[in-house]
Every structure is written in structure tokens, then in C-alpha cells.
Amino acid sequence: MSLARDQIKPQLHRFDDDGLIPNNPMPLLLYKRAVEIAGGDPEQTIEDLFEVNGWGDSWRNGIYDYHHYHATVHEALGVARGRALVLFGGEQGEAIELRPGDVAVLPAGTGHKCVFASHDFRVIGAYPPGATMQVTRPTPDNYRKALQSIPKVRLPDTDPVFGKDGPLLRLWQK
């Protein structure tokens, strides 16, 4: 169950294009402690939240330990268990600690890699309807292709945490 909308305001993080990882002019949204996951099945709680808000194709795992991004789709990452230090935005980006209940929403092209994860770290990933997720590594050729595909990625119709009235809809604009 997500917490009250007026209690959770996303932190905004913007990252510059570094020549290999394009990032995105739209900010990464970080909802700290946005999902109440005490007891029960936290993975299912996050999957259900994403699903009810129109974000699907979910998976359960960790975050790759190498720089990558998704040039064809936006991504939501909800932390169910453990903690991790994730470097967002490429080598010159920002390392952010993620803990249970946190949700990071990455606009297409946002670089990320796991720097550290506790042994019990578990994250749920999900995507808005549309293109299929592809893992893209930062190479010159991939970068050139991503500069063409990222501007074509549709804006989501909903926020993965708060649905049709969520802050993502006013914070992400082309």
C-alpha cells in the first residue's frame, strides 16, 4: 500500500549527457519510503502497486553491477528488501542509497549501476505500456542510436506510485 500522496514528494535528480550515457533532460524521481511493506510479501505489494497504476512487465531481482540504461522505455524500481547503493547518471552521476519502500522512476536513457547491495537486496522493476525493455551498455554506437530513440519514448499515462494524479505527470514533460 502506498502512503498518502501529500506525505510523499519525490526527490528530483537530473543528470547530464556524458557522451556515452545520454541520460534524459527529465528528472529521475525518487520516492523515499513510498510503499508500506512491513510484514507480508513486500515483492507482491510493490508488484500490485505498479500493476494497479498501469506499470507492468515486472521482474524481481537486483540491479546490474555495470553501467547500463534503457533507450526505449522508462523504468520504475521498487525496493522490497535490503539496501543498495546505486550510481545513477554514469560515472559523473550520483550514488544514491535505496532502502525498502523506496521507488526510483528513471526516464529513458538514465544510466544506472549497482555499486553495493546487501545480501538480501531485492528490487521490483516495471515499465509503462509500450516498447519492450532492452539493456543498453554505454558504447559510442549505442549512444548514437539512443540519441535517436530516447526522444521518441512516449510519456507514461500514469505515475507508478500514485497513478493518474501522480507528480510524474506534471514533472515529466517533453
Results as ranks from 00 to 15, higher is better:
130 G>C: 10
147 L>H: 03
147 L>V: 09
126 A>W: 02
134 Q>N: 12
121 F>A: 01
130 G>W: 05
139 T>Y: 09
109 G>Q: 03
144 R>T: 15
147 L>A: 07
123 V>P: 00
131 A>S: 14
117 A>W: 00
131 A>P: 01
145 K>N: 09
129 P>M: 05
118 S>P: 05
135 V>Q: 11
115 V>G: 00
118 S>W: 04
131 A>G: 15
130 G>H: 08
123 V>E: 00
147 L>W: 05
141 D>N: 12
145 K>H: 12
115 V>K: 14
119 H>Q: 12
120 D>N: 14
127 Y>R: 04
141 D>F: 10
108 A>G: 06
130 G>K: 05
136 T>K: 00
137 R>S: 11
114 C>K: 11
109 G>A: 05
127 Y>T: 14
111 G>E: 04
124 I>Q: 02
116 F>M: 10
110 T>G: 01
131 A>D: 13
133 M>V: 13
133 M>I: 02
116 F>L: 11
115 V>D: 12
137 R>Q: 12
139 T>K: 10
134 Q>M: 14
142 N>P: 04
117 A>V: 00
119 H>D: 13
120 D>A: 10
112 H>E: 11
125 G>S: 10
108 A>I: 03
122 R>I: 11
143 Y>F: 14
132 T>K: 15
147 L>F: 07
123 V>N: 02
114 C>G: 09
134 Q>K: 14
112 H>S: 08
136 T>M: 07
128 P>S: 08
139 T>A: 07
128 P>D: 07
115 V>N: 03
140 P>K: 09
145 K>I: 15
135 V>A: 12
114 C>F: 00
135 V>Y: 14
143 Y>T: 07
128 P>T: 10
128 P>A: 06
134 Q>G: 08
140 P>D: 09
134 Q>Y: 13
127 Y>S: 05
132 T>H: 12
148 Q>N: 11
122 R>H: 05
132 T>A: 13
128 P>L: 06
121 F>N: 02
119 H>V: 09
121 F>K: 02
107 P>G: 07
134 Q>F: 14
110 T>I: 12
141 D>Y: 09
